[in-house]
Simulated scan of single mutants.
Amino acid sequence: MKKMIAPSMTLFAVFCATSAFATEQTLGTQTGQELGVSLSSYKYEEPNFEPGLDVKDDGIKLGVDYTTTMAVQNDWFLKVNGRFAYGKVDYTGSGTSSNNPDYYYEIRPLFGKDLMVGNSVWAPYTGFGFRYLNNDSRGETSTGAWGYQRVSRYYYLPIGVTNRFALENSSVLESAIEFDYLIRGQQTSKLSDVSASYPDLENRQDSGYGIKFSSMYRVNDFAIGPYIDYWNINKSDAVIYSAGDSTYIGYEPKNTTIEFGIKASMRF
């Protein structure tokens, strides 16, 4: 006797299979481009620079970032991410000063793999990161001290994972957490901005780390959500330099940077 299958059951089976395929395709890493803008609060600090004295730079930054992604075979993917952020910060330390230009950019080639787990995708990734920061504190502070330009370069190893979880109404929650291992840092202090008798210093930083976290609510190609970037860098090596008849020891103190804000992006 031939077994008959009800049309409604057949349609239901096709719908389930199609839905599962659509969910996997939506959650998986897609080939394409993404452009984002951000507004954030930024704070750099050298805690206990001297007994009872913390050095700080804080302000608001506007940022833009761009990511190009290529999905390849067997759920692997390649990404190149770039970010630029600019703002004016207020200095507190040896006196105070305001509206000092401060900007940074990052470039990060990355690769990873999608892993389907239940109703979500976990996408671990790694690669290489470069971060460049320029802080321009030239000028006189409220106590008569003179500031100068500082340039930071970080070469680091990012290790992270992105999770995408399907929500109702075809929306997706996309969260990422990343640990950044500092391979090497280089600090340039342009003391010649203070006086021609001072040399520019180069200090090497060999110990430190960063943490990045974001959680984006995505509807189709539009996404919005909060993010946090944090850096903790230990004291640099020391160099001996002379200015006039005096000899000094110069180093970059232990420092932290925290930036938190909101980002909106469009995928195309």
Score class of each variant (00 low, 15 high):
residue 134 N to F: 06
residue 58 D to G: 01
residue 56 K to M: 01
residue 168 E to T: 11
residue 22 A to I: 03
residue 41 S to T: 02
residue 75 D to W: 04
residue 76 W to M: 14
residue 206 D to E: 13
residue 213 F to P: 01
residue 1 M to L: 11
residue 108 R to Y: 09
residue 79 K to I: 01
residue 145 A to Q: 06
residue 39 L to A: 15
residue 238 A to Q: 13
residue 117 V to R: 01
residue 196 A to S: 13
residue 23 T to A: 02
residue 98 S to T: 11
residue 203 N to L: 03
residue 91 Y to R: 02
residue 144 G to N: 10
residue 240 I to V: 12
residue 265 S to W: 10
residue 76 W to K: 07
residue 239 V to R: 13
residue 32 G to I: 02
residue 21 F to P: 01
residue 169 N to M: 06
residue 59 G to K: 11
residue 232 N to T: 04
residue 14 V to C: 10
residue 74 N to Y: 15
residue 174 E to D: 14
residue 169 N to F: 02
residue 194 V to A: 08
residue 198 Y to Q: 03
residue 56 K to T: 02
residue 41 S to I: 09
residue 9 M to V: 08
residue 66 Y to I: 14
residue 106 E to N: 11
residue 60 I to K: 10
residue 212 K to A: 10
residue 164 R to G: 00
residue 155 Y to P: 05
residue 43 K to F: 09
residue 26 T to V: 01
residue 207 S to D: 13
residue 111 F to C: 10
residue 172 V to H: 02
residue 17 A to L: 12
residue 208 G to E: 05
residue 156 Y to G: 01
residue 257 T to Y: 11
residue 7 P to F: 06
residue 227 Y to I: 15
residue 207 S to A: 10
residue 170 S to C: 03
residue 10 T to P: 03
residue 136 D to V: 03
residue 70 M to H: 14
residue 3 K to Q: 14
residue 206 D to T: 10
residue 101 P to Y: 07
residue 199 P to S: 01
residue 214 S to A: 12
residue 258 I to V: 13
residue 152 S to R: 09
residue 73 Q to E: 15
residue 49 F to N: 01
residue 54 D to A: 03
residue 46 E to M: 03
residue 65 D to H: 15
residue 213 F to A: 08
residue 180 D to G: 02
residue 8 S to M: 06
residue 86 Y to T: 10
residue 115 L to N: 04
residue 216 M to E: 11
residue 148 Y to G: 04
residue 249 I to C: 02
residue 50 E to L: 13
residue 36 G to E: 08
residue 23 T to Y: 00
residue 243 A to S: 15
residue 256 T to G: 15
residue 94 S to F: 15
residue 188 T to E: 11
residue 178 E to Y: 07
residue 42 Y to V: 07
residue 130 F to K: 07
residue 121 V to F: 00
residue 222 F to A: 12
residue 104 Y to P: 06
residue 155 Y to I: 07
residue 208 G to L: 04
residue 87 G to K: 08
residue 226 P to I: 11
residue 196 A to I: 08
residue 178 E to I: 00
residue 250 G to L: 04
residue 153 R to V: 08
residue 256 T to E: 15
residue 249 I to P: 02
residue 178 E to R: 07
residue 24 E to R: 00
residue 226 P to L: 15
residue 23 T to K: 00
residue 145 A to V: 03
residue 160 G to W: 09
